[in-house]
Design a protein around this nucleic acid. Structure first.
Lengths: 383, 383
DNA sequence: TTGTAGGCGTTATCAG
DNA sequence: CTGATAACGCCTACAA
């Protein structure tokens, strides 16, 4: 890659000596932006009050007289006072930060599912006066990060992403005594923790039923990585649906991998090459579904007409709405991952502020939305 | 062994009246995880040393004797000591956090471009001992967030995302005296600040040249939102290319909007409906390019054959590699946004730790990579 | 090489 | 209703 380093020019340093005297002498009280390292001390001196009173007035304690509070609030705004975060944390033990660990690895299902979750969570965080603290690490270092977060008191709580079928992080966080919520669940772990999950098994069961109703009998599954709990449940629901409808489970019609566009493309091409290809395909995310769409197009097959498709749709914001002629492109199981983030954040913060250990648990059902990608199986191709 | 130490330690705790002695009664199992809120004070008492010495030993000061350092380090590890973050921040003024503001709005170009940038930045952050602090707010509140970050000393620096042609955030951050780096640039603002950008104008100029060389004379542009600096520059490069090749600028062949898949789909359909449709289209991101691909397929047109396409490709991780039969699907201008995040983080942290105000500036060139989507124009359609 | 003492800017406790 | 005063846990001159 060609990289041109532009010239870097030295700026003339205005010799301001800002570092030394932190508070500006602001005689003229203009609305000028100040560098503003006004402390509680200076503010209280300015007002002729004690730090205690000023702190109480600002934090809404009831015993402060209204007149005093008004004076204090006005002065604080004028001097652009903001309490130093570290100092407040040190005194209260609360940080106002929620930790998110992002494992940097092959099978990170974070991108962009994670981004959308975070957008939703962040929305609630800022409403509630919190920030998200992000740490990107290699997967094997993830547990150390939790120990670090806990030991250094960096966060008030943690969100666990992408739980595996048997996820060690849950017990670790319990032992660290850090409030946390899991986005998803971990089935082989003692279930006494907070989580927000979608009913993945039922969603995929429904998808199968729907396709069977249309006459399909060879149905394929392009699943996520099945070490992940959500993917394991989806497969379980899928198989349950096949069996309930008297169909046999065919391993050649099931794939499992990290959910991205090229994977969907490759898996779909693989199905098309079978001597007895499926007449319907279920995708675990809209990303591989798009890859599937691309593969079908290139193979000269028409979505819906030649092959029926149902996809699980997290309603990723940069793909919504995906439609053709006003109708959804894909028949899909929908559940907004951004909404999940918003709600999970709310549950976690409630748990933190309530300071009780009762687990919060919520199970969402996905909506089945009909689009152009499902049709009755063509007679010539029915098994 | 560990158990004995813990016992001793606990009595020491009782003596000093440490708040909420969190250390667990550890009956039998030595390797059990402890909750560990060990302070410097308790650690130093345990060792029979002063806090000063222990602090110095742990922070690698040279004047500590090796024997002492070893003892201290061993004890710290054994007691699972970790310095409290808030306390360290308060004492040093440094937070170890870099702020990112995510505007939640219609035209947020953050998703998933932003996610990839952050993945790259986060990689460097954790190497350098930093975390990313995220705040999601509505666009009009963004400046308040910077004031908050600065006034409360929440972060050591800030990354500015998605700069507009005339971006007020830059002057604000200068006046707040917060170290920052811009991902991109803002052309109508005094240029004396740190940035990392791609040579957008030249990239799009090259795309035009490339298509003209193939005989195309009606070339369309599906651009990003042109209030954004990067999009304005791309358009400038595009127009410059047309003019340099003696082509006229046709407003009906240029669109500008938030870069996502449905936008690319709609814009492309619009072009195909023109009485005199373009023979080539340039997309500002792979997301609209995918939408374009979908639109072309549905219209029965073949990528490359009927319409040539060049896309700008940020090499988003969940779309890489996008290829057909081993060849890139799209001819594209490539520049990894994740690499940009990594580098920007590095530049910012260097600036923070060096504590000098010299702006760091770097301009990257995009690579032009040939794929299947560009071919000589078909004779019947040449203008 | 190690220790003492003071400070960082809040909040919380207990008097008045 | 208001005000001293003591934490909170760490860092860092300045001393020894």
């Amino acid at each position: 890659m060609l990289r041109a380093i532009l010239k870097v020019f030295q700026s003339a340093l205005a010799a301001t000596g800002i570092i030394g005297s932190r508070v500006r002498e602001n005689q003229g009280h203009e609305d000028r932006e100040t560098v503003s390292r006004v402390s509680l001390k200076s503010l209280s001196q300015q007002l002729g009050l004690s730090q205690t009173t000023v702190s109480r007035a600002l934090n809404g304690f009831p015993e402060v007289s209204e007149r005093t509070r008004e004076r204090v609030v006005a002065a604080a705004r004028q001097m652009n006072y903001r309490p130093n975060n570290s100092a407040a944390n040190l005194a209260t033990g609360r940080t106002g930060q929620i930790g998110h660990v992002i494992p940097l690895s092959q099978h990170m299902m974070i991108n962009p599912h994670f981004a959308d979750f975070l957008a939703g969570a962040g929305e609630h965080y800022s409403q509630a006066g919190y920030d998200a603290l992000l740490r990107v690490v290699s997967t094997q270092d993830e547990e150390d990060v939790y120990r670090d977060f806990a030991g250094r008191n960096r966060v008030d709580g943690v969100v666990v992403h992408g739980p595996e079928v048997n996820d060690a992080r849950i017990d670790l966080l319990r032992s660290l005594d850090v409030p946390f919520i899991v986005h998803g669940r971990s089935d082989t772990v003692d279930g006494d923790y907070s989580w927000l999950d979608v009913n993945n098994a039922r969603a995929f069961r429904r998808a199968v039923d729907c396709l069977v109703d249309l006459g399909h009998r060879r149905i394929a599954l392009v699943n996520g990585l099945e070490t992940m709990n959500f993917a394991a449940r989806r497969r379980a629901g899928f198989c349950e649906g096949l069996e309930a409808n008297g169909l046999t489970i065919d391993a050649t019609l099931m794939t499992s991998a990290d959910m991205n566009e090229p994977y969907g493309y490759d898996a779909t091409l693989g199905f098309l090459r079978l001597r007895n290809p499926p007449t319907a395909i279920i995708y675990a995310s809209i990303l591989p579904a798009m890859g599937g769409h691309r593969a079908l197009s290139e193979a000269g097959q028409t979505l819906g007409e030649d092959v029926s498709v149902i996809t699980y749709d997290d309603q990723l914001s940069f793909l919504r709405p995906l439609e053709t002629g006003g109708l959804p492109l894909f028949t899909s199981l929908r559940s907004s991952i951004q909404a999940a983030g918003r709600r999970a954040a709310q549950m976690l913060i409630e748990q933190i502020t309530a300071d009780d250990d009762t687990p919060r648990q919520e199970l969402w059902e996905a909506d089945l939305v009909l689009g152009r990608s499902t049709r009755p199986v063509r007679q010539s191709r029915a098994a």
